Amino acid sequence: MRPRAAYRVFRVVALTLVVLVLVAPLLWMISASLKTNVDIYDPDKALAFSPTLANYAKVLQQANYVEFIVNSLWVAFAATVASLVLGLPAAYSMSRFNMRKSALVVLMARVIPGVSLLVPWYYVFSNLKMVGGFGVLIISHMFVSLPLVVYIMMGYFDSLPAELEEAALVDGLTHVGAFRRITLPLSLPGIATAGILSFIFSWNNFMFALVLSDADTKTLPVAIFDFVGYASIDWGGLMAAATVVTLPIMVIALFVQKYVVSGLTAGATKG
């Protein structure tokens, strides 16, 4: 076998294995959500079973998951919009005015484990009587999304030619005007990437919502935890709830993946 043909075979086998590793847990989750708890524990019914929608009925009706879906949408949307409003000007300033020390601080905030700030935040927000409200959840989610927006958009702004803004300044625009009328329209793919990833990270956030929310502001990842009891686990309901959380994000990712890829690689060829 020629080396090129052997490489093609190896590539197909490797890609197939990777896809199976990634897709198998999702397929098991979806199939388990259509089974009763008895069928889930029965190895003979791993593939051949009678599907049921009782778990989804439990999730969407009895467990009041529609309210939790609305809570997650609101928190993720508000955190994403606030992060974009604050992060875009910050990323532009760091990119155009060579504020590399500030960029280093943002990068440090990006890699600091959120759990290290959870106890201080709870202490501060509890004294401010904010624990249990949507405001504290949005602020806590911005700890993840805001550095992400700044980090992505700095690379995107670096890839844009500064000559366009210099020409706008010569024509009489201020730096703010050039940013608003020249840079932002050219940065829409990067903004879409930052917004999508910010929304996904906020939608999936579990730790902050577990500690800082209450019964009225509970988000979907926390609501899933209700199916885990002290003595037993409702696997059918748990898998149905996990499917409800996962499928919207998967659909969004499938439709916007080209924007995410283009936005993440925009600054890779700078220089």
Score class of each variant (00 low, 15 high):
Tyr92Met: 01
Thr36Cys: 01
Lys35Ala: 09
Asp158Ala: 11
Ile152Thr: 00
Leu146Thr: 07
Ser93Arg: 06
Asn37Thr: 10
Ala54Ile: 00
Leu86Gln: 00
Tyr92Phe: 11
Ile40Ala: 03
Leu146Phe: 13
Leu117Ala: 03
Asn64Pro: 05
Ser140Cys: 11
Asn64Val: 11
Trp121Tyr: 12
Leu160Glu: 13
Ala167Thr: 15
Val131Asn: 07
Val115Asn: 14
Leu86Tyr: 06
Ala167Met: 06
Leu146Tyr: 06
Phe77Leu: 14
Phe68Asn: 08
Leu128Thr: 14
Leu86Ile: 06
Pro43Ser: 06
Trp74Ser: 09
Met154His: 02
Ala48Phe: 12
Glu67Gln: 00
Leu104Pro: 07
Tyr92Arg: 09
Phe157Ile: 13
Phe77Val: 14
Ala167Asp: 15
Met153Ile: 12
Leu34Asp: 06
Val111Ala: 10
Leu137Asn: 02
Pro43Phe: 10
Gly132Ala: 15
Ala90Gln: 08
Val111Lys: 01
Leu137Met: 15
Ser102His: 04
Pro89Tyr: 02
Ser116Asn: 10
Val150Asp: 11
Ser116Val: 15
Glu67Gly: 00
Leu107Ala: 14
Ala79Val: 08
Ser145Ala: 14
Phe77Asn: 04
Ile138Lys: 05
Thr80Cys: 09
Ala76Tyr: 15
Ile112Gln: 14
Pro43Thr: 09
Glu166Asp: 15
Tyr92Ser: 04
Ala57Val: 08
Ile138Gln: 06
Leu160Val: 13
Tyr92His: 00
Arg110Thr: 01
Val105Asp: 10
Val124Thr: 13
Asp158Tyr: 07
Val105Ile: 15
Leu128Met: 10
Leu148Asn: 07
Ala91Ser: 04
Ala91His: 03
Phe49Arg: 08
Val131Tyr: 08
Val150Leu: 13
Leu86Cys: 08
Tyr56Phe: 13
Lys58Asn: 13
Val124Arg: 02
Met99Arg: 11
Leu53Thr: 11
Ala46Pro: 02
Ala32Ile: 05
Ala57Tyr: 09
Ala91Gly: 07
Leu148Ser: 05
Tyr65Pro: 06
Ala79Lys: 03
Gly87Ala: 03
Val106Gly: 02
Ile112Glu: 14
Leu117Thr: 08
Ala54Thr: 09
Arg96His: 00
Leu84Glu: 12
Ser102Phe: 12
Val149His: 04
Ala91Pro: 02
Ser83Pro: 08
Gln61Gly: 14
Asn55Asp: 06
Ser159Glu: 05
Leu60Gln: 15
Ser95Asn: 07
Phe125Trp: 03
Arg110Asp: 01
Ser72Tyr: 07
Glu166Val: 11
Pro43Ile: 06
Phe125His: 00
Leu53Val: 05
Leu128Ser: 07
Ser33Pro: 13
Val149Phe: 03
Ser72Phe: 10
Ser140Glu: 05
Ala79Phe: 10
Leu88Tyr: 04
Val81Ser: 02
Gly87Pro: 05
Leu34Pro: 01
Leu34Tyr: 01
Val105Asn: 09
